[in-house]
């Protein structure tokens, strides 16, 4: 587990200050989408060995949701961005 996370608002912090929600790359299906699509979105998760984008909440700090991009094998952290900023960037890139 990556043990030091560089929060864009609070600085370098230990992982104990965060709570992890999971995969940040999922896109919510259309409300009218099929049951299979919703089942995949709600329940089905890959468990990759390597680079992974996750939602982390800095509960003991600024309380913001962050997107942490890390390697599940080497524990290397590639980037940490505020989730709101990450969403704006993703939507701008469409």
């Amino acid at each position: 587990m990556a043990s030091l996370i560089h929060c864009p608002h609070c600085g370098v912090r230990p992982k104990e200050e965060f709570s992890i929600r999971g995969d940040a790359s999922l896109v919510r299906p259309d409300p009218e989408a099929s049951d299979e699509a919703w089942n995949d979105y709600v329940h089905i998760r890959s468990n990759p060995r390597g680079r992974y984008r996750e939602h982390w909440q800095h509960v003991a700090g600024c309380r913001r949701w962050l997107v942490v991009e890390r390697d599940t094998f080497t524990h290397e952290v590639f980037s940490v961005t505020d989730a709101a900023a990450a969403t704006v960037a993703r939507e701008a890139g469409r």
């Binding site: 609070c10 600085g11 370098v12 912090r13 230990p14 104990e16 200050e17 003991a60 700090g61 600024c62 309380r63």
Partner: peptide, 17 residues
Amino acid sequence: TDLHPAIFETGTSVNVL
């Protein structure tokens, strides 16, 4: 958190565990 006087200057404040 790093509390060294040169890093955590007077007037700095943060939420921390």
